[in-house]
């Protein structure tokens, strides 16, 4: 098990091997399909892409007194092509669920990034690892807006590493 803090360095990426459990802490950002479409065309971003982490999630509405609503991962494959320009701008970790394309995996290795998975369908449990949340971009997208999240020991597994291992193929 590896504990990681954001922002993520190239050294951190070297430590990650497929199948390993990761507890992630620090600031991460959310983005799904529509937010990706917009992000790739933004000249200036309200957060630093270099060393950043993007979590593929669209949470449920938050109740008063809670940091966020239910917040589990969505399927990552839908973001495969759209993730490439963001990795080229320094995106280091993506958190989602499920297998992705070979093209994505090659681009990920080339850009020295990593793909982590969180367990789908456990959004209530995962939300307890999110300390705070705020919408920072594209509020009009509703659940698909970009949130800034502060997480503490957020549980993931390394799915693809830079050494070519794949949790879905090596089991």
């Amino acid at each position: 098990m590896i504990k990681l803090n954001t922002p993520i360095s190239n050294n951190d990426i070297k430590l990650l091997e497929a199948g390993e459990k990761v507890l992630l802490s620090g600031i991460i950002y959310t983005a799904r399909d529509q937010a990706h479409l917009r992000l790739i065309n933004e000249k200036e971003l309200p957060f630093k892409m270099k060393g950043s982490v993007i979590y593929y999630v669209g949470p449920t509405p938050k109740r008063d007194g809670f940091s966020i609503g239910s917040s589990g991962p969505t399927s990552s494959y839908r973001m495969d092509k759209l993730a490439v320009p963001l990795m080229e701008r320094g995106l280091k970790l993506m958190i989602g669920k499920g297998d992705r394309s070979e093209e994505f995996r090659k681009e990920m290795i080339k850009n020295n990034s990593c793909y982590l998975i969180a367990t789908g369908g456990i959004g209530a449990l995962l939300s307890s690892k999110i300390i705070s949340s705020e919408i920072i971009l594209y509020e009009d997208l509703g659940a698909e807006a970009v949130y800034k999240l502060e997480v503490k020991d957020f549980p993931c597994f390394v799915a693809y590493d830079i050494y070519g291992n794949n949790i879905f193929k090596d089991n």
């Binding site: 449920t60 809670f66 589990g72 367990t119 456990i122 959004g123 209530a124 449990l125 307890s128």
Partner: peptide
Amino acid sequence: KEISKSILSDILENQDIAREGNIPLCQDT
């Protein structure tokens, strides 16, 4: 397998948390 067992454990723990009535089982409702 340890990882598979732990995922199923998390799914069970998740439904206990959701049952309290504050946070839905999954973000995709």
